[in-house]
């Protein structure tokens, strides 16, 4: 197994290649550009196709076409670009086509800014595009997880025939760390019998999202829902750090959770029994695990790099009879551990 020193973005792109990515369509937008730059160079070397599309709208539809042919497909973008792709993501979900979409979040609304943000939690987890569907969303917090979770996203996308998303901030994509390249020999992808092959075999295959006859559409939407239910049973990922005896549990995802870990250490050094709960899969959300924690711990402090989005899910799951605090940082700079430690302290003193 190779040990590498990689940026998060490179680690993710390498993970995609090891996961047998065969088609990537991209469009330039800051701060995700190093992903297409890396793949434009590396993907052709492994027999993959790289296309720079004329627009975000075009590229997500290129994915739709290539995915229908049974190969692994991916794109990456940053927030405004993801907004433009929502139509395509909805069609991918409706047509039951696997694809991986990476959002290296920047600030919004509008043009916003290019700093590290978690402003797209709602967009990613509550749909984004039109219609009745869920997209599995994974939130890595290290270069290693960039590698591991992009592979996971491809597997989940194929297993459930759904678009899947990686939601990450620019700090994780820029940061360099040690990465174990677990699958340097590549991953073998199962043949997709539903997809278009080299030629028509047997009955005509139709891949579509339009259902006008009878109750076809209702059946179709329940089918999508069943897939989501299955994901909730099988695909939940989270990390609970020092939560067992915690008097206060910090909750966050992505980079701020990582900083939160240091803040928890600081708090423990200074006599506060703090813990950290980190959802890794945002969809499906680790509801049961969080509910269990809420029977043991009274105090929760949600930290996000926005004005409060995931905190609504925490309130929904944990319930009204708990103290749920929130600290938001809607700016280009993530808080440092000391700052989060002070928030923990302040919260307990209140």
């Amino acid at each position: 197994m190779e040990k590498l020193f990689l940026r998060g973005s490179e680690s993710l792109a390498l993970g995609a290649i090891d996961a047998s990515l065969k088609f990537y369509a991209g469009y330039p937008i800051t701060p995700q550009n190093d992903i297409p730059e890396f793949l434009s160079k590396e993907l052709p070397k492994v027999g993959g196709k790289f296309v720079q599309a004329e627009s975000e709208v075009a590229k997500i539809n290129m994915l739709l076409g290539a995915s229908a042919c049974g190969i692994r497909v991916m794109t990456s973008s940053s927030s405004p670009g993801i907004s433009l792709m929502q139509e395509g993501i909805s069609y991918l979900a409706g047509s039951e086509l696997p694809a991986v979409i990476v959002n290296v979040m920047r600030w919004g609304p509008g043009l916003g800014g290019i700093g590290a943000s978690q402003g797209d939690y709602h967009q990613a987890t509550k749909g984004g595009g039109h219609g009745d569907y869920f997209v599995p969303v994974f939130a890595p917090y290290s270069a290693q997880e960039m590698y591991d979770l992009i592979i996971k996203a491809f597997d989940v996308a194929d297993e459930y025939r759904t678009p899947a998303m990686i939601l990450v901030d620019v700090m994780i994509s820029l940061m360099k760390e040690k990465v174990l390249r677990r699958y340097d020999k590549g991953i073998k992808v199962k043949e997709k019998k539903w997809a278009f092959g080299s030629k028509k075999e047997g009955d005509q295959k139709i891949i579509k999202s339009l259902y006008l006859k009878g109750n076809d559409l209702e059946r179709h939407n329940w089918k999508l829902y069943e897939k989501y239910q299955k994901m909730c049973q099988k695909e939940v990922l989270y990390e609970a750090y020092l939560c067992d005896d915690a008097e206060i549990i910090l909750i966050g995802f992505g980079m701020i959770a990582r900083i939160g870990k240091s803040a928890v250490d600081l708090a423990r050094e200074r006599g506060i029994k703090a813990g950290l709960f980190r959802p890794i899969s945002l969809i499906p959300f680790p509801e049961r695990e969080l509910e269990n924690l809420s029977t043991k711990c009274e105090n929760f402090l949600v930290v996000e790099m926005n004005t409060g989005q995931m905190v609504h899910d925490i309130k929904r799951v944990v319930g009204k009879d708990h103290n749920i605090g929130f600290y938001g940082k809607p700016s280009s700079y993530a808080p440092n551990p000391e700052e989060l430690y002070l928030k923990i302290k302040e919260y307990l003193e209140k």
């Binding site: 020193f5 290019i114 700093g115 620019v170 940061m175 040690k178 280009s332």
Partner: peptide
């Protein structure tokens, strides 16, 4: 910064390297 990290990896340490960016 990169070289220092790389050296520490050679000594089997954990490392993070975080560069300035954007504005």
């Amino acid at each position: 910064g990169n070289l220092l990290c790389y050296s520490a990896i050679l000594e089997n340490r954990e490392v993070t390297f975080f560069p300035s960016y954007g504005v």
